[in-house]
Protein backbone atom coordinates (compact mmCIF):
# COMPACT_ATOMS: atom_id res chain seq x y z
CA UNK A 1 0.00 0.00 0.00
CA UNK A 2 2.54 2.57 -0.96
CA UNK A 3 0.36 4.51 -3.39
CA UNK A 4 -2.41 6.68 -2.00
CA UNK A 5 -4.84 8.89 -3.81
CA UNK A 6 -4.58 11.51 -1.14
CA UNK A 7 -3.74 11.64 2.54
CA UNK A 8 -6.37 10.57 5.03
CA UNK A 9 -7.50 13.71 6.82
CA UNK A 10 -10.01 13.98 9.62
CA UNK A 11 -13.30 15.46 8.67
CA UNK A 12 -14.47 17.83 11.37
CA UNK A 13 -18.13 18.32 10.66
CA UNK A 14 -18.85 21.18 13.04
CA UNK A 15 -18.32 23.99 10.58
CA UNK A 16 -20.39 26.44 12.55
CA UNK A 17 -17.80 27.01 15.22
CA UNK A 18 -19.57 29.25 17.79
CA UNK A 19 -16.42 31.13 18.70
CA UNK A 20 -15.39 31.58 15.10
CA UNK A 21 -16.20 34.80 13.42
CA UNK A 22 -15.99 34.64 9.70
CA UNK A 23 -12.91 36.31 8.32
CA UNK A 24 -11.71 36.87 4.77
CA UNK A 25 -8.05 36.68 5.65
CA UNK A 26 -6.21 35.22 8.60
CA UNK A 27 -2.85 36.22 10.01
CA UNK A 28 -1.14 32.93 10.75
CA UNK A 29 2.17 31.27 11.57
CA UNK A 30 3.52 28.92 8.91
CA UNK A 31 5.52 25.79 9.67
CA UNK A 32 6.90 23.44 7.05
CA UNK A 33 8.58 20.08 7.46
CA UNK A 34 8.36 16.40 6.74
CA UNK A 35 5.18 14.45 6.75
CA UNK A 36 4.87 10.75 6.14
CA UNK A 37 2.60 11.02 3.10
CA UNK A 38 4.84 13.61 1.52
CA UNK A 39 7.97 11.59 2.30
CA UNK A 40 6.59 8.38 0.85
CA UNK A 41 5.38 9.99 -2.34
CA UNK A 42 8.51 12.07 -2.89
CA UNK A 43 11.01 9.28 -2.43
CA UNK A 44 8.99 6.83 -4.46
CA UNK A 45 9.53 9.36 -7.21
CA UNK A 46 5.90 10.20 -7.94
CA UNK A 47 6.43 13.95 -7.94
CA UNK A 48 4.68 14.68 -11.22
CA UNK A 49 1.55 12.92 -10.12
CA UNK A 50 -1.65 14.28 -8.67
CA UNK A 51 -0.75 12.37 -5.50
CA UNK A 52 2.23 14.64 -4.83
CA UNK A 53 0.06 17.72 -5.19
CA UNK A 54 -2.35 16.20 -2.68
CA UNK A 55 0.31 15.31 -0.12
CA UNK A 56 2.64 18.32 -0.44
CA UNK A 57 0.46 21.05 -1.92
CA UNK A 58 -1.64 21.10 1.19
CA UNK A 59 -2.02 23.27 4.26
CA UNK A 60 -3.01 21.40 7.38
CA UNK A 61 -5.12 23.77 9.43
CA UNK A 62 -6.91 23.91 12.70
CA UNK A 63 -10.65 23.24 12.14
CA UNK A 64 -11.49 26.51 13.88
CA UNK A 65 -9.35 28.48 11.46
CA UNK A 66 -10.94 26.69 8.54
CA UNK A 67 -14.34 27.53 9.95
CA UNK A 68 -13.38 31.18 10.17
CA UNK A 69 -12.39 31.18 6.52
CA UNK A 70 -15.33 29.03 5.58
CA UNK A 71 -13.28 26.44 3.75
CA UNK A 72 -13.72 22.69 3.90
CA UNK A 73 -11.34 19.83 3.18
CA UNK A 74 -9.73 19.97 -0.26
CA UNK A 75 -10.82 23.50 -1.08
CA UNK A 76 -8.10 25.91 -2.15
CA UNK A 77 -6.48 28.57 -0.02
CA UNK A 78 -3.88 31.12 -0.96
CA UNK A 79 -0.97 31.46 1.48
CA UNK A 80 1.10 34.61 1.29
CA UNK A 81 4.36 35.50 2.99
CA UNK A 82 7.03 38.12 2.47
CA UNK A 83 8.66 35.73 0.03
CA UNK A 84 5.76 34.81 -2.23
CA UNK A 85 2.32 33.35 -2.51
CA UNK A 86 1.06 29.90 -3.38
CA UNK A 87 -2.27 28.16 -3.75
CA UNK A 88 -2.65 24.91 -1.82
CA UNK A 89 -5.42 22.66 -0.57
CA UNK A 90 -6.79 23.20 2.91
CA UNK A 91 -7.37 20.20 5.16
CA UNK A 92 -8.14 19.54 8.78
CA UNK A 93 -5.01 18.78 10.68
CA UNK A 94 -4.68 15.51 12.57
CA UNK A 95 -2.51 17.36 15.08
CA UNK A 96 -5.10 19.97 16.01
CA UNK A 97 -5.72 21.99 18.02
CA UNK A 98 -3.16 24.51 16.85
CA UNK A 99 -5.21 27.57 16.18
CA UNK A 100 -3.26 30.25 14.39
CA UNK A 101 -0.70 27.87 12.90
CA UNK A 102 -0.70 26.08 9.56
CA UNK A 103 1.56 23.28 8.42
CA UNK A 104 2.59 22.73 4.80
CA UNK A 105 4.75 19.66 4.19
CA UNK A 106 8.09 20.44 2.63
CA UNK A 107 8.03 20.49 -1.16
CA UNK A 108 7.87 22.86 -4.12
CA UNK A 109 4.66 24.49 -2.89
CA UNK A 110 6.04 25.32 0.54
CA UNK A 111 9.29 26.54 -1.01
CA UNK A 112 7.59 29.39 -2.78
CA UNK A 113 6.74 31.00 0.54
CA UNK A 114 9.53 29.93 2.88
CA UNK A 115 12.34 32.25 3.81
CA UNK A 116 15.76 31.78 2.26
CA UNK A 117 17.23 33.94 5.00
CA UNK A 118 19.95 31.96 6.77
CA UNK A 119 21.14 34.71 9.11
CA UNK A 120 24.64 33.51 8.19
CA UNK A 121 23.91 30.08 9.61
CA UNK A 122 23.64 28.22 6.29
CA UNK A 123 20.14 26.96 6.99
CA UNK A 124 17.06 28.75 5.65
CA UNK A 125 14.19 29.56 7.97
CA UNK A 126 11.60 26.95 7.09
CA UNK A 127 9.58 27.28 10.25
CA UNK A 128 7.86 29.99 12.20
CA UNK A 129 7.14 32.32 9.29
CA UNK A 130 4.28 34.80 9.51
CA UNK A 131 1.80 34.46 6.69
CA UNK A 132 -1.73 35.24 5.66
CA UNK A 133 -4.26 32.67 4.54
CA UNK A 134 -7.31 33.39 2.43
CA UNK A 135 -9.82 31.39 0.47
CA UNK A 136 -8.99 31.00 -3.22
CA UNK A 137 -10.77 29.86 -6.37
CA UNK A 138 -7.58 28.92 -8.11
CA UNK A 139 -6.63 25.35 -8.82
CA UNK A 140 -3.57 23.92 -7.04
CA UNK A 141 -0.92 23.42 -9.71
CA UNK A 142 0.73 20.11 -10.48
CA UNK A 143 4.46 20.04 -9.67
CA UNK A 144 5.74 20.56 -13.22
CA UNK A 145 3.32 23.38 -13.86
CA UNK A 146 4.23 25.00 -10.56
CA UNK A 147 7.96 24.87 -11.31
CA UNK A 148 7.31 26.42 -14.71
CA UNK A 149 5.03 29.11 -13.38
CA UNK A 150 7.27 30.12 -10.49
CA UNK A 151 10.82 29.82 -11.86
CA UNK A 152 10.13 30.34 -15.59
CA UNK A 153 13.50 28.90 -16.54
CA UNK A 154 12.55 27.79 -20.02
CA UNK A 155 9.61 30.07 -20.66
CA UNK A 156 10.15 32.64 -23.43
CA UNK A 157 7.16 34.84 -22.80
CA UNK A 158 6.17 35.12 -19.17
CA UNK A 159 2.77 36.53 -20.04
CA UNK A 160 1.92 33.30 -21.80
CA UNK A 161 2.26 31.10 -18.72
CA UNK A 162 -1.40 30.99 -17.70
CA UNK A 163 -2.32 30.00 -21.27
CA UNK A 164 0.21 27.15 -21.54
CA UNK A 165 -0.99 23.59 -21.62
CA UNK A 166 -0.42 21.62 -18.42
CA UNK A 167 2.73 19.50 -18.44
CA UNK A 168 0.63 16.73 -16.94
CA UNK A 169 1.49 13.88 -14.62
CA UNK A 170 4.24 12.21 -16.65
CA UNK A 171 7.78 13.37 -17.46
CA UNK A 172 7.92 15.36 -20.69
CA UNK A 173 11.01 14.88 -22.85
CA UNK A 174 11.90 14.04 -26.44
CA UNK A 175 12.87 10.45 -26.96
CA UNK A 176 15.53 9.53 -29.48
Amino acid sequence: MTYVEKPAVPKVVKLEEPTATERKILEMMLNTGSDIYQGACKKRGSTCKDEYRKVAGIAYMDPKDMAKLGVTNWESVKVTTDWGEVVVYAAHSRDAPHEGTIFIPKGPWANVITSHETYCCCDPTYKGITCTVEKSDEEVLLMADLMRAVYKKYVGDEESIPELKSLGEMPVFKKK
Binding site: T2, G39, A40, C41, K43, R44, G45, S46, T47, C48, K49, K153, Y154, V155, G156, M170, P171, V172, F173, K174, K175, K176
Partner: peptide, 22 residues
Protein backbone atom coordinates in the same frame (compact mmCIF):
# COMPACT_ATOMS: atom_id res chain seq x y z
CA UNK B 1 7.69 3.27 -0.79
CA UNK B 2 11.18 4.23 -1.92
CA UNK B 3 12.28 0.71 -2.69
CA UNK B 4 9.03 -0.09 -4.54
CA UNK B 5 9.75 2.95 -6.68
CA UNK B 6 7.54 4.58 -9.29
CA UNK B 7 9.01 3.39 -12.59
CA UNK B 8 6.94 6.03 -14.48
CA UNK B 9 9.33 8.65 -13.24
CA UNK B 10 12.54 6.68 -13.17
CA UNK B 11 15.27 8.50 -15.04
CA UNK B 12 16.40 5.98 -17.59
CA UNK B 13 18.25 7.90 -20.27
CA UNK B 14 20.73 10.79 -20.30
CA UNK B 15 19.19 14.03 -21.50
CA UNK B 16 20.30 17.51 -22.52
CA UNK B 17 18.09 20.57 -22.72
CA UNK B 18 17.82 21.89 -26.31
CA UNK B 19 17.49 25.50 -27.47
CA UNK B 20 13.69 25.33 -27.12
CA UNK B 21 14.03 24.40 -23.48
CA UNK B 22 12.99 20.78 -24.02
Amino acid sequence: SKIMEDMDQRLLVPMIRDENGD
